[in-house]
Design a protein around this nucleic acid. Sequence first.
DNA 1: ACCTGAACACCGTTCAAGT
DNA 2: ACCTGAACACCGTTCAAGT
Lengths: 237, 237
Amino acid sequence: MAAVSSPSRRRTEALSRERIVDAAVALLDDAGEGGLTFRALSQALATGPGAIYHHVANKEELLAAATDAVVAGTLADEPDGTPQDKVRALALGLFDAIDAHPWVAGGLTASSWQATSPRIFEKVGRQVRDLGVPHDRWFTVTSVLVQYILGAAAQNAANARILGPDVDRDEFLGAVSTTWEELDTDEYAFTRTVADQMRSHDDREQFLEGIDLVLAGIGTTVRPTGTPVMPASPSRS
Amino acid sequence: MAAVSSPSRRRTEALSRERIVDAAVALLDDAGEGGLTFRALSQALATGPGAIYHHVANKEELLAAATDAVVAGTLADEPDGTPQDKVRALALGLFDAIDAHPWVAGGLTASSWQATSPRIFEKVGRQVRDLGVPHDRWFTVTSVLVQYILGAAAQNAANARILGPDVDRDEFLGAVSTTWEELDTDEYAFTRTVADQMRSHDDREQFLEGIDLVLAGIGTTVRPTGTPVMPASPSRS
DNA sequence: ACCTGAACACCGTTCAAGT
DNA sequence: ACCTGAACACCGTTCAAGT
């Protein structure tokens, strides 16, 4: 916060990768994916478009860095409780972050095996290990959990994006629900019957139920020494 | 296939939404997301850029239509077997389609609640119903399944994209695995221990294991009339 | 070394003008 | 009604020139 050190230049502070990334996050947050522009960015930083290239290779790397900044913030605080609780807390933290910054979803799929995902992978993987999953299944089970978390959060963010800030959620869900009710009787027999469930569902709640479903599935593969196979987390209905 | 009817014009056939969408799919397939351009498209169709707008509202709608065309093709043939088998077949069909046309992943998240997703939702939902899931959980369980399928497939496609056609998969996985082994001992204690599992994993296989994990989770919530809670699909190890 | 900002090679989209 | 293609208002990225 202190703009002290170094002899004052034309700008308050010299350009730096960190300042650029911060400005990028701000731009993405209030103007969306399409709002991140080297021209808009250079204006916000009181510099020329070319200057940014001295600190960032290209737009893709910039988006990845902005994504990483948000995710790192989310993973900062350590949850506590059972491994199941920790998975839920981690998942919900990411879900909320992606909901608040929908552009993160795009950034994550664009840079999967890079810096960001390993961070998430590590946090989730530790819980998988503590859950008692056999060692030879750690990679697969952790991957599946991470894939569900990021996949579900990304799809939720996509919906939030088309909703926009000015569209009423209930109104929108009601409209979709009505559309579903009017679908072809034969071709969409199933979808029609859940139109009302769709109208009244809660995204966060549904996301958590998905986590619990996967945790329950993991539970069926876990055999704590000497005890029989048990469905996971009996503490939740 | 027959280019008969109507008096011959400068082009073999008049422009139509279908011809435009077909050309878009072809363009996306061999040049990727960035290859779809109104200029490239109009050249392929021997017309001007403006002409396309008489049949398609904008690029977003065009991408959605192209996505829908691919997905509809995938869902065309009806699988058979148990509901579990059908879910696996449906999921694998989508996985393979997204793997073959990576741009579909982006198209799906960009137009989630539109025409494409309901088609997938319906197909999956019917199996959820046949699985014996209680009626009041149909929407949630189906959503979770669809979210996992599309989310995992999308992330796989993202990896395939950064891999590219000219990069050797084994070599790439080996490189990532080595990176993981060299990560910080404390910060990445878990990730380091699964570096070798990551090197030898198979994407399709892992995807299917994820499906089975979710199905197993669903199994713990299913109570066929009069019988106790049972883990799902005892037929698979 | 870092920054500037004009310039290059593109985009999606529009629109007067043609048929 | 459908098509044309120039034109508009943008992009990301580069690069000579400055400090």
